[in-house]
Design a protein around this nucleic acid. Structure first.
Lengths: 138, 138
DNA sequence: GGCTGAAGTGGGAATTATTCCTGTTGACTA
DNA sequence: TAGTCAACAGGAATAATTCCCACTTCAGCC
């Protein structure tokens, strides 16, 4: 388990990666499954999960564990923050400068070995506001 | 359905709240269930879920949707940030000053109506480091 | 070009966390 | 004490994810 395993570039992996790179949204595993299935109708959901997990482990993609019930995936691996719409649930990137220095502060304050951080904003996206959705969330 | 429902202070609710207030950790619904069951053996898991949800809606407690697969709950409702151990999964509070101003920045940059934000640090807690756990997470 | 073993796949079963449903309980009011 | 209704317990249902296993594919060797 300690040596780097062979990771083959299969058609499935290639297409999953391509489809993920196509979108700027942060699809859930199921959404990736749907996108990939258009090109590869016989792919299994398990394969999508397995490969998204694998690719996030090797650092090829990012796995987002943001609020909501599902994990989301991101082909952009440079550190950045996210904003989530409380109404439709979509997650966008937000271009706020990443504050690396607060990791140091956090390490000093806590007794943790700090490896990173993530900021998630919550709000209502313009589409939902336009629809006149009440901002008080149930 | 449109008038505010009466919220009774039942024994179950009282004990859930008490048990949650007792701990500084951020228990999952199941952990709350276990704690409460010691005092109220016949309580149902559904009741715990229903009431945690209800209390978080009314603002009595905080529902944390941090990384990991489960929701966690917190009796401390003042805004604060969290740090999660990547090895044992526990979530601690971290006493870093809350940066309210970045909400404004976020609102300017994004097209969202920004309602709030949360920072989650990831790292390895002192217990896990002491156990000599490797910091590279699988 | 065919053989072989490891890596990968598909599809369904299993697991985990959570929510929903239904009949029952118990607190309050009249 | 009877009526009413929010809340309850327990189990079923759902949703997301992971696991399992027999079959397929591919890289390297003959």
């Amino acid at each position: 388990m300690q040596h780097t395993p062979q990771m083959r570039l299969t058609t499935q992996r290639q297409i999953i990666l391509e489809e993920l790179a196509k979108v700027t949204s942060h699809p859930t595993a199921n959404e990736v499954y749907d996108m990939v299935r258009k090109r590869l109708p016989r792919i299994g959901l398990g394969t999508v999960y397995r490969n998204l997990e694998l690719m996030s482990e090797t650092g090829l993609i990012l796995k987002l564990e943001v609020g909501g019930t599902q994990k989301r995936f991101d082909a952009t691996i440079a550190p950045h923050y996210h904003i989530r719409c409380l109404h439709c649930g979509k997650v966008d990137d937000i271009d706020i400068p990443v504050q690396i220095d607060i990791n140091k502060t956090a390490a000093e304050i806590s007794h943790y070995q700090v490896l990173g951080h993530h900021i998630e904003f919550a709000g209502v996206c313009s589409e939902c506001s336009a629809k006149g959705v009440d901002e008080t969330v149930n």
